[in-house]
Simulated scan of single mutants.
Amino acid sequence: MLVSTNVLAVRPTARTLLAENGSVAALVVLVVALSLLSGDFLTVTNLLNVGVQAAVTAILAFGSTFVIITGGIDLSVGAVAALSAITLAWTAADSGLPWPLATLVALAVGIGCGLVNAALVAYGKLPPFIATLAMLGVARGLALVVSQGSPIEMPEAVSHLGDTVGGYLPVPVLVMALMGVVAAVVLNRTYSGRAMYAIGGNEEAARLSGIAVSRQKLVTYALSGAFAAVAGVVLASRLASAQPQAASGYELDAIAAVVIGGASLSGGKGRALGTLVGALILAVLRNGLNLLSVSAFWQQVVIGVVIALAVLLDTLRRRSGR
């Protein structure tokens, strides 16, 4: 009888671990499967390439994690990334501003876009979907206006972000790791991080407990904008130019990475590590399908199915009360 009791006590723990680490298990299975299907997959060069491919999406997704944990959504991160990169290149190339100051201006643009989103949501009472969709159009339009629809060359010092350290380790991967650490610290070690979880869990209860909900939403969306600006600079550095149409559709990949990583679209749940794993799953999947010479059209189908399954699993988790 004692043994049965112990077994019953272990089962919920095992189920909990599986639920919390399901994305990690999925990544491991995916890596093993692609290693068996393609001899070129499990090589150092290709794995570093996967990291580079995941970098921009992961950085965007870290910022989106903050918003999704509060129960919101940010559809503007791809456009804000493009606008921030265009701002950096334009202020440095056309206005002659030193690149460190131009970088700060680009970061300020990303934060400013986030603050506008937050103001529309927190004070204008617009649904996050509508507010950030409007910002998507505004930011993309401004990127086209400033650049006049043409790419702008990035400053040489900034373009080194697309290079490698010692000719081996890609800088975008290092930036991704750094931003992941920042996201984890914000979520786990700061008052704002704890407030995000509280707001996502129950906004009214958070307000009654003394949390300044509107102020914390300003912080949340500002962080999302800042991470988008960093992602835009990294992407432009890889391309050696800021392009007004860059990062188009990346907002969907960012949201997908957050959900695949175990966050809940209803809010109150999510981790930086899970988001990183979600971004890696998308990058590994795309890389593996390319190595297997799968048509780009079918790749879109596969990615869509993966996203649908991730959202379905999130829905099932919420229904089961996990």
Score class of each variant (00 low, 15 high):
S84H: 07
A85F: 06
I86P: 00
A89Q: 02
T91I: 03
A92Q: 02
A93N: 09
D94E: 14
D94A: 15
S95Q: 11
S95Y: 09
G96F: 04
G96V: 08
P98W: 08
W99Q: 02
W99G: 01
P100T: 05
T103D: 03
L104H: 03
V105G: 04
A106Q: 06
A106S: 13
A106K: 09
L107G: 04
V109Y: 03
G110Y: 00
I111S: 03
G112W: 10
G112Y: 10
G112R: 01
C113P: 00
V116F: 13
A119K: 01
L120F: 12
A122I: 08
Y123K: 13
G124W: 11
K125P: 02
K125C: 00
K125M: 11
L126V: 13
L126S: 07
L126I: 14
P127Q: 13
P127N: 12
P128S: 15
P128N: 09
F129Y: 01
F129Q: 09
A131N: 04
L133A: 10
V138R: 00
A139T: 08
A139C: 08
L142G: 01
L144K: 10
V146G: 05
S147C: 11
S147T: 06
G149M: 09
G149S: 04
I152C: 12
I152K: 09
I152P: 12
P155E: 08
E156I: 04
V158P: 09
S159W: 05
L161Q: 11
D163F: 14
G166K: 06
G166W: 05
G167H: 12
P170S: 05
P170Y: 08
P170K: 07
V171L: 03
L174G: 04
L174Y: 10
V175D: 04
V175Y: 06
M176Y: 11
M176P: 00
A177F: 13
A177E: 02
A177I: 15
L178E: 01
L178A: 15
L178M: 06
M179Q: 04
G180V: 06
G180F: 07
V182P: 00
A184H: 12
A184Q: 10
V186P: 14
V186T: 02
T190N: 13
T190P: 06
Y191V: 15
Y191F: 10
Y191H: 14
R194Y: 15
A195R: 05
A195H: 10
A195S: 11
M196H: 01
M196F: 15
M196P: 12
Y197H: 05
A198W: 12
A198G: 04
I199S: 04
G200D: 08
G200Y: 09
G200K: 00
G201Q: 06
E204S: 10
A205L: 05
A205G: 12
A206Q: 02
A206S: 10
A206M: 11
L208I: 06
G210I: 11
I211E: 03
V213G: 05
